[in-house]
Amino acid sequence: MKRDIILAGVGGQGILTIATIIGLAAVERGLQLKQAEVHGMSQRGGDVQSHLRISDRQIHSDLIPEGRADLIISIEPMESLRYTSFLAPDGWLIANKKPFVNIPNYPDFELVWKQIEELPRSILIDADKLAREVATGRSMNIVILGASSPFLPFELSEFEHAIETIFSRKGEAVVTQNVAALRAGRAFAEERNLAMQ
């Protein structure tokens, strides 16, 4: 078993929280893990990505080779497309629908969405809206994790446990909200019957 995941977004959007939750679930299972992060200059509103690799075998490279990622999980639609060269032929791309516009030449939203939806295996999810419905807007990254969860080798309860561990410091309410966000994202993916076999 191995999963190679590219996490994408814009600096400050919180891709590392997703990485931490998946990472914790992997560690609890006793799996191997490597996670390359971006620190420093690009964090200031630039494009950021993290390579997250989990496996039951030894992982050598901290970086995922091109054409091998099982998943691209992106908090921002255009950013999900930046890394398509990494996606394996049978890989899935899960992206938030809401654009983060901080450049003057951001492409037409419809074109970006169309490009994602035309991929053979993709989920475009309005995570901000879903998050506001079940929790607060801030949990949108957890909604995206929920929508990605059918493609990850973990039970939903394992992610819930990880969320509890990570957010318990911030109080019961924050844990409950994030668990709700996780479930909402999961339900969205399941409704579309998209679980990878």
Binding site: V10, G46, L81, R82, F86, G91, P107
Partner: peptide, 16 residues
């Protein structure tokens, strides 16, 4: 065998 080439609509997003 790299995956799909990055679509042309993707713009650079420098730090700010």
């Amino acid at each position: 065998q790299p995956g799909m080439e990055k679509p042309q609509i993707v713009q650079p997003r420098p730090p700010e």
